[in-house]
């Protein structure tokens, strides 16, 4: 019978804590940049100018239909050679996951904006707003409220996807676990602890998201996914 021993893992807790912090850092950056970029992509895709809507559509489709790990490898190994820049695992991770989540957020934004009834647009135009004003003041505020559940779901997905950065040696939680297991020869305990840490953090986020969603539902807002 195998003798479980968590002491070697516990002794390395600063590494795990730093790893978790790095995971949250990449998730946070990708979330903020992804939201801003996603809104831009969505507005471009909804535009009547093909010069705007086609490139946005192309980027969205490519990043939604290729595996994130392939994207990460491309940005880490290929882009520095094309652009002649130095690339660190951290920057590669931030760039990849920002654009990737932007592609997914763009579709959420688009769905939300399109779910707003035409009458809202017409009324806004009728009282003299420009199209941009109608979007900013009337449509987006209503649309964003409907999109919140889909955003939160995506944010949780994003946090799980960031584990991929361990494959390009960024010191996230999974990478730290791998290090510790090689150092202490305790893979069973280390990977179990890492899995549990992810489980606790992600479950906490999804419980919060669910509670928030319920409150939105009570306030009578339909949601889009």
């Amino acid at each position: 019978m195998y003798q479980w021993d968590f002491a070697p893992v516990a002794a390395n807790w600063p590494l795990l804590a730093q790893g978790l912090l790095n995971t949250l850092k990449v998730t946070g950056v990708a979330l903020v940049v992804g939201l801003a970029l996603g809104l831009l992509f969505a507005l471009m895709r909804l535009s009547r100018h093909r010069g705007l809507s086609w490139p946005a559509g192309f980027v969205i489709e490519v990043f939604r239909t290729t595996p994130p790990l392939v994207q990460l490898f491309w940005f880490f190994f290929a882009l520095p050679l094309i652009a002649g820049i130095a690339m660190t695992p951290y920057i590669a991770a931030c760039v990849t996951f920002s654009i990737q989540s932007a592609a997914f957020f763009a579709e959420v934004f688009r769905g939300g904006i399109q779910s707003i009834e035409r009458g809202q647009w017409e009324a806004a135009r009728a009282i003299g707003m420009t199209e941009a004003q109608a979007m900013k003041r009337i449509v987006l505020p209503q649309a964003v409220k409907r999109m919140i559940p889909a955003f939160m779901e995506r944010a949780i997905e994003l946090m799980k996807t960031t584990t991929l950065v361990a494959t390009i040696s960024y010191a996230d939680l999974l990478f730290a676990a791998n290090e510790i297991s090689q150092k202490t020869f305790r893979p069973l305990e280390t990977f179990t602890v890492a899995a549990l840490m992810y489980f606790v953090v992600i479950t906490a986020f999804s419980l919060l998201a669910r509670r928030f969603e319920r409150r939105l539902a009570i306030s009578g807002e339909a949601t889009v996914h």
Partner: peptide
Amino acid sequence: EFFRNTPVLVQILWFYFALPIL
């Protein structure tokens, strides 16, 4: 709940490195 709330890569590494011990 467990498998939806842990990353796939963590599960794969767990099955590869940790499970063979058990």
